[in-house]
């Protein structure tokens, strides 16, 4: 077994794979990322700007339905983020600071939306608020339009993005521990004073991180929103839905112009994420400590 011990000096072992293997593997990996991700991103901007800046601007602003879809997305995403923010802080506090019966079940419930197809999630809300749905008749009798309206869009978006913020907060809270909070309480701080002065400042970067991811997903959500929006142009089309409609109408310039905004959003999201990862690595380390 140890036949050629002497033939492999340690410094050679430390060098790792032969240079040509290395070069081949690196080239391959770059190729994979360029073909799968890099070129598609460039393609969006190329197609958006291929007829010049002016054409780009007109296809974005010249169409009232497109403008409306931008406005609608900008008004829905922050509400979904806000709902999940409050929930995320509350749930993370309960999970990171206490042991209670059913904790595992609670955690599983939080992850559930990630496992459910967005289309199925959208269907849930149709079943609840549609005309034949559980609350459909009651809502109709009271003149409330939930389905096809903003409330349903916010609900479905919140459903799909539910785990994002809480999943970031739990490891952060676990990582910095409860000593400061206990000290605050024992020195006579009230619960809310402790929260605003100790807990919130400690989790602020994790909170920001989760909000960025949550927002990106909220603005880009398609399947769930598709099911419940009714898809009436200029009324309840969000940006991704509008992209599909323009695509179906063979308005490629319009579709790509709008898609370029969404792509820009995802690039900004990635940039912020990379920046936060580098600047506050506490967040990365804490993940290893997660149970």
């Amino acid at each position: 077994m140890v036949k050629d011990t002497r033939t492999i000096p340690i410094h050679q072992i430390r060098k790792g794979e032969p240079a040509w293997v290395k070069a081949l593997l690196i080239t391959g990996a770059i190729g994979i990322l360029v073909i799968l991700i890099g070129i598609p991103v460039l393609h969006v901007f190329y197609r958006a700007f291929e007829n010049g800046l002016k054409a780009y601007w007109t296809s974005l602003t010249g169409n009232r339905d497109t403008l409306h879809s931008i406005w609608l997305t900008l008004s829905i995403a922050p509400r979904a983020v806000l709902l999940n923010l409050i929930f995320g802080v509350a749930a993370a506090w309960a999970v990171a600071r206490f042991r209670f019966p059913g904790r595992t079940f609670f955690l599983a419930l939080i992850d559930l939306p990630l496992a459910i197809s967005p289309v199925v999630a959208g269907l849930f809300f149709v079943l609840l608020f549609g005309m034949n749905g559980w609350f459909g008749e009651w809502l109709d009798a009271h003149g409330l339009q939930v389905l096809f309206g903003t409330p349903a869009l916010v609900l479905a978006t919140s459903f799909v993005t539910l785990p994002f913020i809480v999943r970031e907060l739990i490891p952060v809270m676990e990582a910095y521990g409860d000593e400061e909070e206990l000290a605050g309480i024992s020195l006579g701080a009230s619960g809310w004073q402790m929260f605003w002065r100790i807990t919130l400042p400690n989790i602020r970067w994790g909170l920001l991180y989760g909000m960025i991811l949550c927002n990106a997903r909220a603005m880009g959500e398609y399947g769930a929103v598709y099911m419940i929006s009714g898809r009436i142009s200029g009324l309840n089309d969000t940006m991704p839905l509008r992209v599909e409609k323009l695509f179906q109408e063979y308005d490629m310039a319009g579709a790509f112009a709008l898609a370029s905004l969404l792509t820009l959003l995802s690039l900004v999201t990635l940039g912020l994420k990379t920046f936060l990862d580098k600047k506050y690595p506490v967040h990365e380390k804490s993940k290893e400590g997660q149970e």
Binding site: I37, Y222, P240, V243, A259, S266
Partner: peptide, 12 residues
Amino acid sequence: LVDLPLALPTAV
């Protein structure tokens, strides 16, 4: 770049 597919809307 690896994370881009998570951030890019699927419709795009």
